[in-house]
Design a protein around this nucleic acid. Sequence first.
RNA 1: GGGGUGGUAGUUAAGUCGGUUAUAACGCCGGCCUGUCACGCCGGAGGCCGCGGGUUCGAGUCCCGUCCACCCCGCCA
Length: 644
Amino acid sequence: MARFIDDLRRTHYCGQLRATDIGREVVLFGWVAHRRDFGGCVFIDLRDREGIAQVVFDTDYVAGEVERIPALLLRGEAFQEEAVVAGAHALAEEVRREWVIGVRGVVVHRGEKNKNPKLATGEIEVRVAEAVVFNRAETPPFAIEDDIATDEEVRLRHRYVDLRRGSMQRTLRLRHRLNQATRSFLSEAGAIELETPILCKYTPGGARNFLVPSRLSPGKFYALAESPQLFKQLFMVAGFDKYFQIVKCFRDEDLRLDRQPEFTQIDIEMSFIAQDDIFRLLESLMFRLFQETGIADLPALFPSGRFPQLEFAESMRRFGNDKPDLRFGLELVELTELAILHEGGGLPLAQEIVAKFANGTYRRDVPAEIVKAFVIPASAGFARPQLEAFEQGLREIKGCKGLARAKVAADGSWTQSPLSKHVSDAFRLAINEATGAKENDVICFQFGDPDVVNAALSKLRLDVAKKMGLIPQSGHGGEWRFLWVVNPPMFERTDEGGWVAAHHAFTRPADECVPLLETDPARVNCYRYDLVLNGFEIGGGSIRLHDPEVQERVFRVLGIGAVEAREKFGFLLDALRSGAPPHGGIAIGMDRLAMLATGAPTLREVIPFPKTNQGVDLMSQAPVIVDRAQLDELKVASTVPREG
RNA sequence: GGGGUGGUAGUUAAGUCGGUUAUAACGCCGGCCUGUCACGCCGGAGGCCGCGGGUUCGAGUCCCGUCCACCCCGCCA
C-alpha cells in the first residue's frame, strides 16, 4: 500500500487552508506552481483547483503542539523524524514547475512580517515533514497563470495544460453553475428534461448537416442533429406539456469567434402558451442564472422584471440588423422617403433609386433599394485616415462599393465630399435636420440594396462605437442590455422570385397576417423571436403552427405541394395531425451566454476543447484520414486523391 | 468560395536600404543562498527565421506559390 493516497489521504484542498487551521496536521496534493530555493529552506507554491498554499521545506524546523491526523495519532507515529524531513528537503531541491507532489505537514502562522495579502491562504503556510513526487512533469510550453500572452494556437495544442490555469478553471466552473441553475430552475418551472437523438434523419434546408455513414445500412447516412427542433415538437404532441434539455447541436457551417461546429443549447418547448409566456419564463431564467453565478444584479437593471421588446422592422431601420447592441446610441437614419420627396436632391445615386419608385418598379412599403445615413459625431475627433480606415472596413461586406462621406461645416454646408458639388441645398438641409448633424459631424451614406446598406451601416456603427470607446473591443463592459426582437417577416424572396421561409415552415404567422398569406406574403410577419444581449443573438424561437389548414396555406406560398411536403416533413405532418396542442419554444446558446457572462473574447474561451476556424482540434488533430479498410466497411469512397 | 492580419529560440517579441557570428525578456539547465512569494546573484545551453521555389555574389528581409492560426463577408431557418 502506498504511503501517500492510500495511507495518507488528502485532508484539505490547498486553496482552502485558513488561519483557523493553524496547528493542524494536513495532507495536500497538487501541482508545483513556483519554487523559491534558499538552500537550507525551500518555498513551494502548491496549487490545486481551489487555489495556492505555500509549503515550506526547512531542515531546522521543530514542530510545537500539533493536532495530529487521527489515524496517525492512533498509530503513535511521530510528527517528524529527522531522516524523513531531510528526505523531503532533498526532494524539494529537485522539484520543478508543474510536478505533481504530495506533502504532509503542519499549518503554521507565517508571522506578521511574512504574510502575503495577495493570497487567500497568505496568512498561513505548511511546514512539511514528509513529501512524495507523483509525476515529474515536463516543463510546460507556457506559464500556468491567469494572464498569459501566449498565442491561442499554442494553448489549444496543449489544452490540458491550458485548462490548468485558474482563469480557465473559473470559467468552466461557471459553466457548471449555469448548467446546475438551468436544470433546477426549469425543473421547478415544471419542465421535464428529456433526451433526443443525435443520429437523425437528414433534413434539407437550414444549416448543413454532418453526415455519419451507416455500417448496417450500406450507402445510407445519418445526420448529426443541428437542433432537436422536430423532436421537441413531438414531445408536445405526446403531451409532455413542458420540455427542456441542455443539448449538443452540430452544424457544418463556416466558423466565427461566436460559432463552433458543435455547441450547446438550452432547448425549451411548451404547450398551450403564448409568446409572452416564453418571454416571462426566459426572463426569469436569465435573472436566476445571473444571480446564481453572481455575474450581475439583473432585477436592479430591469426593475419591471421584463426585457424590452423591439419590432424586427424597427431594429433594421434604427440599427441595420436584428441583433442591435443597445449599449450605445448612434442610430442609423432612414432617408429614402426624404430622397423621394426631394426627387434625389441632385445626388445621382439617389436619383436612380427615386426614379424606380416614381415609375412603379419599387414598392414603398417594401423597398428594394434604400438611402440611409449614419453620423460620426464630431466629438469622436476622428481625422481623415481614421475615416478612411472605417471605409476600408466596409470593403469586407460583399456588395458594398464604398462609403460616401460628407463633413458638415458651421453653416451647414458639406465639405471634404464628392457629394457637396451635386446635392441641392434643400436636400442637404433636410438631411442635416433629419440626421441632426452639427458642425464637424461626418455624415456617412449608403445607397441601394437594403441588405447591403444595412450590413454596411450596422458594421460601421459598431466599428465607430468601439473606436470611440463607447463599448470595449470585447466583453460586456459591465452592461447587460437584453432585448427581445419580435415580429419578423415570415417569408423571404428567392432569387427566382418565389418565397422561402425566413426561419422555418412551421412558424405560426401572426394572427392579423394570416389573411395576407395569399395576397401579400411580403407583409406576413410571424411569432418568431430572438433574445439579444449586447449585440449578440443568444437565443431564438417561435410559436409553431399547429393548425393543418394554415400549414397547407403556408406550404402553398412556399410552392411546396402535398407530395413534396410529405417527402420532406412526413412524420412531423402526421404528428401535427394526430392531436397537436398549440405550442412553441426557444433555444438559448449556452456557449454564447457563457462567453458574454464571463466577458470572454471568443466562444473558444468557454469551451474546454474547441476547434479552430477550420474545424480542427489542434490537440487530437481531428479530423483525420482513415484507413481504406474503414471506408470499405462503411461502403464509402473518398473522391479526394490520397497522398503517397 | 472571397477579403484582411500574422507566422523568427520553449514563450512573447525586435530585426534598419538585401551585407560580418540573427537580438532581448521571460522560461530552461548548472552553481550559491534560511523568509521568499514575479526571490536574488553568478554562469550556460537553446534557431528548418512556417514550408517550397525564384531573383541575387549574398535573402529572416525582395518576388511567386503553399500551409497554418486569427478577424470579417458569403453561409449559419
